[in-house]
Design a protein around this nucleic acid. Structure first.
Lengths: 224, 224
DNA sequence: TTTGTATGAAAAATCGATTATTTGAGCTAG
DNA sequence: CTAGCTCAAATAATCGATTTTTCATACAAA
């Protein structure tokens, strides 16, 4: 598998450092546009040069880093234009995937979806549990579209989620919008279980649009 | 840039070997399902271990290799189910991209598209020039959708093309279908220049469907 | 026979050191 | 001044060697 399943523990240093770096990049723990100083990462993560470089190469192919020959790696800049692109693609691809998921999803899917939504609702976004909430949130969205029947579509959606979250996670929380978004998670489950293909798709696209508004507002000033 | 532009010469060994391997993998010069013997590649391409491993890591993240922790790399198997998936995604994504390209493409695009189509028509598929034809074919299709306005969409389309070609290029040529497909290249240009959005999209989807038939027939017996 | 376990060769992953390239400070000529 | 040059320090890329893990085989016990 190109990108290791996030569930299974990565057993090589290269894979471990890949996962760690992916999370740190998505969480905005590196400044956008910043040059990656390989030797300082080496210290920071206490890892050798070879596995580190292999991980950086993977991240570049995945789109979370920019690789320039003889000039090492850089963190991609945040640009409003690109956020527009990412959000638009999410609407298209996740909308497509959700339609298919609703058509193909079986009873087992219904159960898992209910469970994922419930776990998400119970999780507290406050305090130091943000990472946990983010994990459950990502799982919920993946579960929603999982039975769409296309491995490649799911792969692209995952990739876009990581890109989108680079923007969203540095957004200041807007409690009112947050409540709306949380409500939509439950409504989506309901529509999906009722096999309301069009309604669910419309709501999901609206949900992404609203998240996009949050992501946009947050990054203002930082964008080029 | 995650995946180096194919136009610009790769200047590091890692990037050169990445490009070479990508082409060789797409051209089916490795048996599907085969395990990659790293040290034999080292000899075959006369390259050191570090740049080679970095290239393999990139190819795995790109989807042309499967990476298994502690077990090295394998060439992905060919499976009818996956070809179906890839072709279906190509239809959806390239169809979407073409609509947008026709809406946004300017006069310069029209010229480049005409040029790309002409070069392709003049190229001979016979003899040892197949590689050249494949290059022009890929360029034609990229030009067709280039002004769609979405970097991510283009990226996914490129990736799907490489995947699709793994199947198509080991197909035995079917001269009659080949002529039809070649004709469609010209027709597509005409429809695009006439800004016939729906017509062009329909033809492109038909074109992909026909290529899919070729790819399917060819791989029979080899598929699992 | 079957199942489990030891073992050594093969291969993957990693490390430490070397080589090649870029970058920027200081200098020079126009 | 400023554009261009030189050279040394910084950093990226690569190499050769070492460590770790897997895999196939042989052997032992049930």
């Amino acid at each position: 598998m190109a990108v290791p399943k996030r569930e299974e523990a990565a057993t090589t240093r290269g894979s471990r450092i890949f996962d760690t770096l992916r999370q740190d990049l998505v969480n905005g723990r590196f400044e956008a546009g910043q040059k990656i100083a390989i030797s300082s990462l080496r210290e920071r993560y206490a890892v050798g040069l070879s596995p580190l470089r292999e991980a950086l190469n993977r991240l570049a192919a995945y789109g979370l880093l920019i690789q320039e020959n003889q000039r090492g790696f850089r963190v991609p800049r945040l640009a409003r234009e690109e956020l527009d692109d990412i959000a638009e693609m999410r609407r298209e691809l996740e909308g497509m995937a959700l339609e298919r998921a609703i058509q193909h999803g079986d009873a087992e899917w219904e159960s898992e979806l209910l469970a994922a939504a419930h776990r998400l609702k119970r999780a507290d976004m406050a305090s130091a549990e943000v990472d946990q909430w983010e994990l459950l949130h990502a799982r919920y969205h993946r579960t929603l579209v999982a039975p769409c029947g296309s491995v490649w579509l799911l792969r692209f959606i995952d990739q876009l989620h990581d890109q989108f979250d680079r923007y969203r996670r540095m957004a200041p929380g807007v409690p009112e919008i947050r409540r709306t978004l949380d409500g939509q998670h439950s409504e989506l489950v309901e529509l999906a279980l009722n096999r309301d293909v069009k309604g669910a798709r419309a709501l999901l696209e609206h949900h992404i649009e609203l998240s996009y508004q949050v992501a946009l507002g947050s990054c203002e000033g930082r964008l080029e």
